[in-house]
């Protein structure tokens, strides 16, 4: 097989993996923004907290020896537990820092979110230390090769899990009663109350789901790169937010597409553009700016009125 093509295919696979992770984080941003028009700066921290919760749980289980006997069970268990934990954390943060400000100016809530982000990041740093925490390795076996493309089992797992979560979320939002309540609350909170929706509960749920997805991404990042770090939430956080804006903020499908685009562009830029490796973070932002300049509502965004943008 052609060498250049193999290289391209390899980058495609890497880009998809990274894009999937961004998409998972971006969903939390877009859902929260869609429902209360808030850039939830603390969202990146839920992602980091998920990664740390995963390493804590996995280390315990490894210490107890379960990791050798039932590795998959351990991974699944820590994944579910971290997602639940971050969901609850997000709900608590929402209740403490955002809900009392429901009727304040948007800048106040934004700063409150910024404060929470700094708070949580430093909480992580204080206890987990400033150094990287390593994930247990060697669970997934050696990578294999298909036509020159090196495939990591972890990548397959990430892709499968991402796809599964995205499908589940789509089902939840577009096919269930709860999803309808979420969409209705996002569109008109007063009217939703008038048809009997408790908007506070819906908002809590939205935070919980978003943070759960971010936590899943956090664990997968931990496995993929082998370690987690207290400040790991920031850069992926803003890139994921860029992805959400790129796709049209508030739009769930848009966030997924935006996440994959940002991930893909980053990998491709690093692979094909000279000095792209150093400037890959810049690429994500330049695309964002270009898209917003020519299409301010994002790729999938509806023409929303001024108050929403």
């Amino acid at each position: 097989m052609d060498n250049a093509f193999t290289f391209f295919a390899q980058q495609m696979l890497n880009g998809l993996t990274l894009g999937g992770l961004y998409a998972l984080i971006a969903l939390g941003y877009t859902m929260v923004y869609g429902i209360i028009q808030l850039i939830n700066f603390a969202h990146g921290e839920f992602f980091a907290a998920g990664g740390y919760m995963g390493v804590i749980l996995l280390s315990y289980m490894a210490g107890a020896g379960y990791m050798d006997t039932h590795p998959w069970l351990c991974i699944g268990f820590s994944l579910v537990l971290s997602m639940l934990y971050c969901a609850m954390l997000a709900m608590a943060v929402e209740k403490v820092a955002y809900k009392p400000l429901r009727h304040s100016s948007r800048l106040s809530v934004l700063l409150s979110a910024l404060g929470m982000s700094i708070f949580l990041q430093n909480a992580l740093m204080l206890t987990q230390g400033v150094y990287d925490k390593a994930y247990p390795g060697g669970i997934f076996g050696a990578p294999f090769e298909i036509g020159g493309v090196i495939v990591n089992y972890m990548q397959l797992l990430i892709l499968a899990l991402t796809a599964g979560l995205l499908v589940a979320l789509n089902f939840l939002v577009f096919k269930t009663r709860v999803g309808r309540a979420m969409r209705a609350t996002a569109q008109d909170k007063v009217m939703s109350a008038l048809v009997g929706i408790n908007s506070n509960r819906v908002i809590s749920l939205t935070f919980a789901i978003g943070a759960g997805l971010a936590a899943a991404a956090g664990i997968m990042v931990g496995f993929y790169y082998g370690s987690v770090r207290f400040e790991m939430g920031f850069v992926p956080g803003i890139k994921a937010f860029a992805a959400a804006v790129l796709g049209g903020i508030g739009n769930i499908t848009g966030a997924m597409i935006g996440g994959f685009i940002i991930g893909m562009v980053e990998i491709m830029a690093a692979a094909y553009i000279p000095y792209g490796g150093e400037y890959k973070d810049v690429c994500a932002f330049i695309i964002l700016i270009a898209v917003l300049y020519f299409r301010p509502t994002g790729i999938m965004g509806e023409n929303v009125d001024d108050t929403r943008v």
Partner: peptide
């Protein structure tokens, strides 16, 4: 030309670009 939150994220992006 952008308003509100879009402006916020784009300026954040520019700040990061300068740093990078």
């Amino acid at each position: 030309r952008m308003r509100g939150d879009y402006l916020a994220i784009v300026t954040l992006g520019f700040g990061e670009i300068v740093r990078i």
